[in-house]
Design a protein around this nucleic acid. Sequence first.
DNA 1: TGAAATGTTGGGGCG
DNA 2: ACGCCCCAACATTTC
Length: 475
Amino acid sequence: MSAPVLLWFRRDLRLSDHPALTAAVESGRPVLPVYVLDGEDPDGGARPLGGAARWWLHGSLAALAADLEVRGSRLILRRGPVLRALSDLATEVGADAVFWTRHAGADEKPLADALAACGIRARRFRGTLLFEPEDVRTRQGTPFRVFTPFWKHLQTLEPPARPLPAPDRVPAPERWPASDALEDWALRPTRPDWAGGLRATWTPGEAAAHARLVAFLDERAAGYAEGRDRLAAEATSRLSPALRFGEISPRVIWHAVGDRPRDHGAESFLREVGWREFCHHLRHQAPDLAESPLQAAFARFPWRDDPDGLAAWQSGRTGYPVVDAGMRQLWHTGWMHNRARMIVGSFLVKDLLIDWRAGERWFWDTLVDACPANNPAGWQWVGGCGADAAPFFRVFNPVLQGEKFDSAGDYVRAWVPELARLPDRWLHRPWEAGSLTLREAGVRLGETYPQPLVDHKAARDRALAALRVIKAAEA
DNA sequence: TGAAATGTTGGGGCG
DNA sequence: ACGCCCCAACATTTC
């Protein structure tokens, strides 16, 4: 029997539209699928997964293993470091090649070279993006720094190829090597088990991801352009964690949209997939996106050190209802509506004047879709220091944002139940309600619900003053 | 993928 | 009938 090949799964936890897997199967050799648990995954930038992402990973790996078993294969689980895990496994089974899907971000060449030094050939395949970063350049040959021209340019390129089907069978080796037990990795919380809200909200895995895409396109895509900003509307696709873990490929989404009649809602949805693409291309250019502001002047921004303010924000007790609703949705479900992400981000960075990196780290730990490209790029956008960023002086007013995007109050009432009985008129500004109104709603400010942590107008002025500090230093 | 401050316009109330 | 003021509605500028 010919030497087997290793198929190293990373953030591509699927069988359909998986070029590396398809190539491994078509090589005619036995295939050993392996996942390596490793904080040093070059893909993760030496950054251990956050708690919510670990929970998701458990479900996704379990689903992938089951899908492989249906095809006569298995998923081998090993602990890192990656180089040692892969070279050990290759030695055990006599493999001389490892196939994987490349990912924008860290340089994978050192790993490929180190494997080659052990006599193992690395073959890398596309699969995480619609377009590879080196194929998307301005006329000057530089990467795009502004989204709209980037997105327009993508439309002029050769469209992504049709997705590949999942292989019917994945050829197994004669003998299977040892594997860790998924349970032993303890990816899911036990004491305390905080994952109840996640279980109630999500089903990880490729099949569920495809089902969510179909449901979205059939039921909600047409209303997406109008509904996507409404906080309580459930108008979005909720595909972000599936894209994060590669349970679904962006090519599948691209063609699923393209195969339908032209539809304004679906087009604007595809644009969001374009933002993902943009963020990954940015991280390809700037691997330390989570640490270094793309606009260098912001390295000197006078952020405040405010542990109490940060804790109030994290726990959803800022006294601004729409901010607290978003933060509690995040804590409870591992996900937050995109509009709410902008609102809470603006509040942390501009109202509290806390470094965007503190927010990025909190999201990294609590979001099931926490992605090393999207998360820091989004925070740099919010912080005004990124590419194509919201200018720092664009300060969201949390009251107006609440009244505009949660006008009926359903979002706040769902996540901040202690305010549920307030009339719409006061729901987003309870501190302006009269004492009788508050009493009738069972609200005691400062007791059942916090007083606002800051006065928004004063906080806004403070943020603009801080911005002038770095602008003055720039000049 | 803002908001606030400031400027402009035009209708209506009123002396 | 006229000028004046108020202010809502909208536009522009600024942060």
